[in-house]
Computed example of a mutant assay.
Amino acid sequence: MDFKEYIVDKAPPSAFYIPDFITVEEEQHLIHQVYAAPKPKWKELSHRRLQNWGGLPHPRGMVAEHIPAWLQHHMDSIAELGAFGDKQPNHVLVNEYLAGQGIMPHVDGPMFYPTITTISLSGHTLLDLYTPRPPDTQETPNTNSQDTETHTSSAFEKRYVGSLFLAPRSLLILQDDAYTTYLHGITEVGEDVVSRDILNLPSIPHIPGDTVQRDTRISLTIRHVPKVLKNKVWLGGSRH
C-alpha cells in the first residue's frame, strides 16, 4: 500500500486518510486489550483518560519500556507504509474519549519525529484544524506526553480551517505543515453534523446534513520519539 495515494487534497499539507485500515476483528481485539490493561496503566485527565506504552516521553529523553505484541503488530504495519521514513515507531498514546469529551487545539511539539499516525477504534470523531497565530504570538509547542490543552476554544474560531472525519478502523497520518504548523483539536460535543467543512468528505460513509452521534472512541496515536535514554535513570536527577 502506498499511503500517499490517500492524501486529503483539501487539507493542509500533508494529511492522509485511510479508511478501514484494520479489520473489525482487529478492532475488537485492540479494544479488548486496551481495557484489559492494568488499572495503574490509566492516567485520568479532566476531559479524558489515557495510557502510555513504550515509555513516558520527556524533553530530556524517554526511558524505553516494553511494548506488547498487540500494539507492536500495528506499529510494524504503519512502519511498513514508510510513514516514518527510515525510523521505527516506538511509542503509543492510547486516549479514551467518552461522548462529549475532546481536547483543546494544540501542537504536539518537538519531542516527536514530525509525523503523527492515529488509528481510531469504536467511535468516530471530527479532528478540527486551525491556522497558527502570527509569529509574535505563536503558541508554545506542547512539550509533554499528554498533549496539554492550551488557550480557550473561542480564540480559535476565526482560525478554523476545516475538520477531518475519523471513522472507526481508519488511519490518519499527519506530516509536514499539518504536523508542525497547524493545530489540531476535538470539540466537546455529543453529535456531529456532517458539512462541507469536512476536508475528507469523499472518503467517509456520510453526506452533508447527516447527524452522527458520538460514542466512546479509543485512539491509538503511534509516534517515534527520537531521544531515548539508554539507561534507566531518574529524570529528576541522578540515581544513587
Rank of each mutant, 00 (worst) to 15 (best):
H151I: 12
P114N: 06
L45V: 11
F21A: 03
H206K: 15
G236F: 06
S195G: 12
S170P: 04
L71G: 00
T140H: 11
R48H: 06
H124E: 12
G82T: 04
Y35H: 11
P89H: 01
P205W: 13
K41L: 14
L235V: 12
R239E: 09
A37Y: 08
H106M: 09
D9A: 10
R60W: 09
H124A: 12
E44N: 07
I31C: 01
K87S: 00
P40K: 08
S203D: 12
T180K: 13
M1C: 05
L127S: 09
D197Q: 13
L229Q: 11
V107Q: 13
P57F: 13
D128Y: 07
R223G: 00
L129A: 05
Q33D: 03
T211Q: 04
T118S: 12
T152P: 06
G82D: 00
L172C: 07
K43E: 08
M1Q: 04
P40R: 07
F16N: 00
V212R: 04
H47T: 12
G185V: 14
T137I: 12
H74D: 01
Y179V: 02
I207N: 08
R159N: 12
G61W: 14
Q72I: 11
D128C: 08
F16H: 09
A167V: 14
N142Y: 10
P57T: 10
Q175Y: 11
T211Y: 02
F3P: 00
D2P: 05
I116Y: 04
L220N: 02
R159C: 09
L235A: 10
L98R: 11
I207H: 06
S195Y: 06
I198F: 01
Q72G: 03
Y6R: 11
A11R: 15
K4C: 03
P134W: 13
T117C: 06
F3I: 07
K227A: 03
L93C: 02
V225N: 01
V92K: 06
G185D: 07
W70H: 04
A155P: 04
L174K: 13
L201N: 06
N95G: 04
H124Y: 15
